Structures are given as structure tokens and as C-alpha cells.
Simulated assay, not measured.
Amino acid sequence: MIVLGIDPGTATTGYGVLEDIGGKARLIDYGVVRTSSGTNQAIRLLEIHNRIEQVIQCYSPSVLAVEELFFSRNAKTAITVGQARGVVLMTAAERGLVIYEYTPLEVKQAVVGFGNADKRQVQAMVKAILQMKEIPKPDDAADALAVAICHIHAARLAKVRGTQL
């Protein structure tokens, strides 16, 4: 199973592509889609759609894992991130991917084993789990890889329990 993990954002959308080999994650690719703040919002969303479409075409994932939104302060940021997230979900649905959503707490617990882990702890564990030489950069790509790892762990647990995701 190929898993596409996404950390949505309007300025930067992170993606990570992992292969699930018997419950272990193998790194295939990761990166970001960047859009310019001086560009019309609709054009930025179209760029996110087009680039995620390219990633899907290139790697043929069967699953999209995406982080649920969590914002407590800035409503404007929440709205624009929500728009980017919606575009990602629509693109994945359009291509027939099965979509799973995880809370930030679930991602941190799956990757670090601790729901209050900070960003550096998550990045260090992503590096260790995927046997990378360096912490993946930028942060958005590392977060997308963490979401994909979370899905692989959740799928393995579901299989062990004899349940289905």
C-alpha cells in the first residue's frame, strides 16, 4: 500500500509518500507545494490541486492521510488552511483514493508515543522511523510524513485487532 500524507496549507502544503511494507514505513518521496502570497487565492488553490494531482499520478497511492484542522486563535488562517485542505480532499476523492483523517494528538501519539510532543520530537522520530540521514525539511514536509506514518501504524493496529479502518 502506498500512502500519501498531507499537511495542508495555502502558502505551503507538505506531502510525504510512504510504502507500507508489513506495517513498516518505507520512504518514497516528500516535499512541499509552495504558492505565492501575492497571487489570487483561487489561483493558489488551483496550483495546490495541480501539484497534488501530479504527485498522485506519479506514485499512485491508494490512501490519503491528512491531518484534521486545529486552530484556536486565528480564524482567517483557519479559513485559508481549510480551503487548501478541501482542495486536497477533493483531489484525492476525484482520483479514487481512500481518505483517512487524524488529529494532531493521534499523529503525535503514533509517531512519538506522546500526545504533547513538540515539533522537534516529531521530526526526530520521523527521521528515525524512516531511517533518514537528516530531519526532513521543511517542517510541512516532515509533518506530512508524520501523518503518513500515523496511518501506517493505525492500519497495522487495525489488522492486529482484526478490525478494518
Results as ranks from 00 to 15, higher is better:
residue 1 M to Y: 08
residue 2 I to M: 15
residue 3 V to W: 07
residue 4 L to P: 05
residue 5 G to M: 05
residue 8 P to I: 06
residue 11 A to F: 02
residue 13 T to F: 09
residue 13 T to Q: 02
residue 15 Y to L: 11
residue 17 V to Q: 00
residue 17 V to L: 11
residue 19 E to S: 11
residue 21 I to W: 08
residue 26 R to F: 14
residue 32 V to R: 03
residue 34 R to N: 13
residue 35 T to M: 02
residue 36 S to A: 12
residue 42 A to D: 06
residue 42 A to I: 15
residue 43 I to Y: 03
residue 43 I to K: 02
residue 45 L to I: 09
residue 45 L to V: 08
residue 46 L to N: 01
residue 47 E to V: 14
residue 53 E to A: 12
residue 56 I to H: 02
residue 61 P to G: 13
residue 62 S to F: 12
residue 63 V to G: 00
residue 69 L to R: 01
residue 76 K to T: 14
residue 77 T to K: 06
residue 77 T to H: 05
residue 84 A to W: 02
residue 84 A to M: 01
residue 84 A to V: 05
residue 89 L to H: 03
residue 96 G to K: 11
residue 99 I to T: 12
residue 100 Y to M: 13
residue 101 E to R: 13
residue 102 Y to L: 08
residue 105 L to M: 13
residue 107 V to M: 10
residue 110 A to G: 08
residue 115 G to V: 07
residue 120 R to W: 04
residue 120 R to I: 04
residue 120 R to S: 11
residue 123 Q to G: 15
residue 127 K to E: 07
residue 128 A to F: 07
residue 128 A to E: 02
residue 128 A to P: 00
residue 128 A to H: 04
residue 130 L to V: 06
residue 130 L to Y: 02
residue 134 E to I: 03
residue 135 I to Q: 04
residue 136 P to D: 12
residue 139 D to Q: 08
residue 142 A to G: 03
residue 142 A to W: 00
residue 143 D to E: 08
residue 144 A to D: 03
residue 148 A to Y: 09
residue 150 C to D: 04
residue 152 I to V: 12
residue 153 H to V: 14
residue 154 A to T: 11
residue 154 A to Q: 08
residue 156 R to F: 15
residue 157 L to I: 12
residue 157 L to H: 07
residue 159 K to I: 10
residue 161 R to C: 15
residue 164 Q to E: 15
